[in-house]
Amino acid sequence: MTTPLAGAHAKPDDTVNVARGGKFLAFFLSDEEYGIEILRVQEIIGLLPITRVPYTQNYLKGVVNLRGKVIPVIDLRLKFGMPASERTSETCIVVVHLRGIEVGLIVDRVSEVVDIRDEDVEPAPSFGNAVDTEYIYGIGKSQGRVKILLDIEKVLPSMDMLQYEESATHSG
């Protein structure tokens, strides 16, 4: 159980995921359950008023004030191409560390912190072109349920990609 968490950023890009277990924060998007390495998570906050930023991708909901810091907030549902959902009292923002800054992720519901053993993590399956599995670090099994473990670095490879491609707008 004391397996050190392999930082997702530490492994070379082209190798097959050597899945490692550890502690994960589990949350729901629709009825799918996801997990993020707990060491990446700084805090969980309720929904705040979000300021929209022009010329950005639709999944960037905008920026919020986190105790004086202006941090971006990403709607994971939109990022993964799922339909937007109604905000409920359970909707919240998971603040994670990413390349030296904090980033907020909007999730439907946070469920628990789970401990997943090395042997219970399987590499991401391939679905061909239908589903992009690039940002999936592995599939974890816990208490008979499946959790999609995210490699957050791959979910947001760079902050510049948040901007709306201008060339596309000019052709309109």
Binding site: L48, P49, T51, V53, P54, Y55, T56, L60, G62, V63, V64, N65, G68, K69, V70, I71, P72, G100, I101, V103, M159, D160, L162, Q163, E166
Partner: peptide, 27 residues
């Protein structure tokens, strides 16, 4: 004034962000 570049990259027409009186961010 706070820089947004680290958070969302350089946005055309926006020079930064600021926390307004009600705690929300204003561009």
């Amino acid at each position: 004034a706070k820089s947004l570049t680290k958070a969302v990259g350089k946005i055309q027409g926006v020079s930064g962000g600021a926390i307004l009186g009600d705690g929300q961010v204003g561009l």
